[in-house]
Amino acid sequence: MKKLLTILGPTASGKTDLATHVAYRLNAEIISADSRQVYRGMTIGTGKDLGDYVVNGVTIPYYLIDICQPGTKYNLFLYQQDFYNVYTEIQKRDVQPILCGGTGLYIESVLKGYQLSPVPQNGILRTMLANKTLDELSVLLRDLKARNGSVMHNLTDVDTAQRAIRAIEIETYNLEHPLPKRELPAIDSIIIGVDIDRDLRREKISKRLCQRLDNGMIEEVKGLMEQGISAEDLIYYGLEYKYITEYLIGRTSYGEMVHNLEIAIHQFAKRQMTWFRGMERRGFTIHWVNARLPMEEKVESVIALLG
């Protein structure tokens, strides 16, 4: 049975490129840990970069990308189940699995084996919360998290009232229906973090945003709206989909959209690093690899850690 290799890092760090090059060397297969890349048709805005999965003419198998329709509400519970199904199948074939992504909560949930339950919508609670501001909702969520001892629903990631209400709904359910912390087994994994310095990260984020806008990211969001995906649902997905949708429905100008989106992506990358540092405080060992190193050096250092 192959030991799981996990490669994580903030947006624009080059983690997928590293994971695919390692996979090429090891004949490995990649399981994505990205909360937005699960949606079909949301390609440019989520940075799927599917071209990275072709290395020296070889297509690296990948999973949990493009598995559900936009407009649906994929969640942590579903991800955990989907991950275990794929992980088990890969292990049965004695193939090296690589977990790769930037959604720290998804990664932590499967490595620690948290027990989760599908939380139904609570109509009464939603009605009670409907007229509250995001700040008011954030205060309620902070209190529930403290009472639950919860590490889920990072307050800085709950950036819309809709997301905050859903987080409160989940935390309320878990408070009223306490569960043991684990059901699925924890997974021992060698964890690699791509360490990209702040200046390079900011440079790559800004450059990549310009490229995505030039490559049709606005048209992608417009196409999703034309398919019937509501503005509310697209705003729920945050970042590129939130800011571009607000521009398309006339809430902001093009210049405001680009400026605010760039700031939001920089803040998002910072939050990702905060989560990964938090994982270290919670007992995970992360082996950091310098993003500036040549690819071959990075690959060799990762393989050496596998033994």
Rank of each mutant, 00 (worst) to 15 (best):
L141T: 04
Q121H: 12
D159A: 06
L224I: 10
S150C: 04
L200N: 13
Q211A: 11
K145R: 15
R202A: 07
I192Q: 15
S109Y: 04
K204W: 11
L209F: 06
V119D: 02
R208G: 12
G149H: 03
Q115F: 03
D214Y: 11
G223H: 08
S189A: 15
L141Y: 02
I170Q: 09
Q227Y: 02
Y106R: 04
L209Q: 14
Q115D: 07
L209D: 04
N131T: 14
S138E: 11
V110F: 02
M152F: 15
S206M: 09
P185T: 05
Y114W: 06
Y106T: 05
G216C: 06
D197P: 04
G228K: 13
A130T: 11
Q121P: 12
I170W: 07
R201C: 12
L213P: 10
T133R: 02
R163Y: 00
I190D: 09
R202N: 13
E183D: 10
Q162R: 15
E108I: 03
V110W: 01
I124G: 01
E220K: 10
E108M: 07
I190K: 15
G228A: 10
V158E: 15
V110K: 02
V119L: 06
D195T: 04
L141C: 04
Q121Y: 12
G216V: 12
N174W: 08
E203Y: 12
R126S: 12
V221T: 10
L155R: 03
A167N: 09
S150N: 02
S117E: 13
G216N: 14
N122C: 01
L125H: 07
K112S: 00
Q227L: 09
L175H: 01
K207R: 11
I191D: 06
N215L: 08
A161Y: 01
K222Y: 14
S230F: 14
E220I: 11
R126P: 01
I191Q: 08
I192K: 14
E108Y: 13
L125T: 05
D214S: 12
L137M: 05
D157W: 13
I205Q: 09
H153R: 09
R142E: 14
G216P: 11
R163I: 03
E226G: 00
E108G: 02
K222G: 00
S150V: 04
L224H: 06
T172N: 09
R198D: 15
I107Q: 03
G149D: 03
A161F: 00
D199S: 15
N215Y: 06
N131H: 12
L140Q: 07
R202K: 13
A167D: 14
P185F: 11
I218D: 10
A130L: 05
S189K: 03
I218Q: 12
I187Y: 07
L179D: 11
T160K: 04
L209A: 07
V158P: 04
E169N: 15
T127E: 15
Q227A: 06
M128I: 11
